[in-house]
Nucleic acid binder design. Structure first.
Lengths: 192, 192
DNA sequence: CGTATTTCTTAACTTACATTAAGAATTAGA
DNA sequence: TCTAATTCTTAATGTAAGTTAAGAAATACG
């Protein structure tokens, strides 16, 4: 399992075998069955999770009980509550598994000590965070400038594999519309 | 001018005087008068800018000619087009000055070489990028779960100083509504 | 395999926000 | 200081997307 993470890191920075051993010793394996939580709102999140197998998601629940999905994390993605980790505040995010999944957990304190012992890992995470920020900015721009229909089309282009993996209502929750309205958009699309 | 940047960096990581000299040698001073561009859509952006004085913003223009503001950068903030820098693609963002401003420019290639010569700077930017991602995620959640009125109230809480510095229409553009509707919300608010 | 649960669709009705337009207030800068 | 340009407000009208509800389809799982 850890090999998958090591390969992912090596795709960005080279590691010696001693460094690989250090990483292996600090990371914990964990299974997350479908619908089980890795993390719940209100807790202070200590971990980032690397998805080895399956797919997780992070989301909030608003005062009316509606879920709003912030992130999907398929294989080879990291997922965490960056806001809580950075501000050291209780989380408003839930993280759970959409399908039976396996993850590797890295606590924030281990991560910070890794940055000291293996500076290349600070580079690895710096690059990942830059990419995540670029994507997040793009999502904000889409929100500000596109209609619901256009956001759906972008989603289909960007995550073609997810379309067939996750329920429609999760797509709706990610692009910020109701499942009923998404259903309507899809019906129109087929008609034309 | 550069002293302001050095102080900002030292607020996060300690620097030796040799390191300070290296940074000083790589950074370029530049004035950006009100309404002048630092960067335009279509160009490949080579620089990140640190705002020493004034206030810049980044924004897109949609096909109907409407502006959508991605970021405000008051004093002591960095601004860049992370998407283009990371993906190395032509930008869809414009960056200009809201008021007469002074900035320090750091090219991506200088930044990357600084990461090798002064690893502490990789930490500095890793931390800034984590913070920016946390804020961006929060903004996405606000978008998904709050009404226009609530988003305006959050904006007032988060950027109290900007409210009096920038035009209303820029606030509207940032929170994703028309200036007319913001005007209406404000009128209702005063009434109650 | 069959039942319960979840998800998806359709349709009538509602609402939050956009559009258009025109005048008032503010600000820029010659 | 004066005029032009920009920004802000108000109000009538339009529409994209939400709400409610009820049945159909798909999926989970005992």
């Amino acid at each position: 399992m850890v090999e998958k993470l090591i390969r992912h890191i090596q795709g960005i920075v080279a590691l010696s075998s001693e460094e690989i051993d250090i990483i292996k010793s600090l990371v914990k394996e964990r299974e997350v069955p479908r619908k089980k939580f890795l993390h719940q709102a209100g807790e202070i999140p200590y971990y980032s999770a690397f998805v080895v197998e399956g797919c997780l998601r992070s989301y909030t629940v608003d005062r009316n009980g509606f879920e709003h999905i912030l992130q999907f994390a398929p294989e080879n993605w990291w997922i965490s509550d960056m806001y809580s980790v950075v501000k050291n505040q209780p989380s408003i995010l839930y993280i759970d598994a959409l399908i039976d999944s396996k993850v590797l957990l890295l606590s924030r304190s281990c991560q910070l000590s890794l940055f000291d012992s293996i500076p290349k890992l600070e580079r690895y995470f710096r690059i990942l965070t830059e990419n995540a920020l670029a994507s997040s900015n793009q999502r904000t721009i889409n929100y500000l400038s596109l209609s619901a229909k256009e956001r759906y089309e972008r989603f289909c282009e960007m995550y073609p594999s997810l379309i067939h993996t996750i329920p429609q209502k999760s797509v709706a929750s990610y692009i910020g519309i109701t499942p009923e309205f998404l259903s309507k958009l899809r019906a129109e699309r087929i008609k034309v």
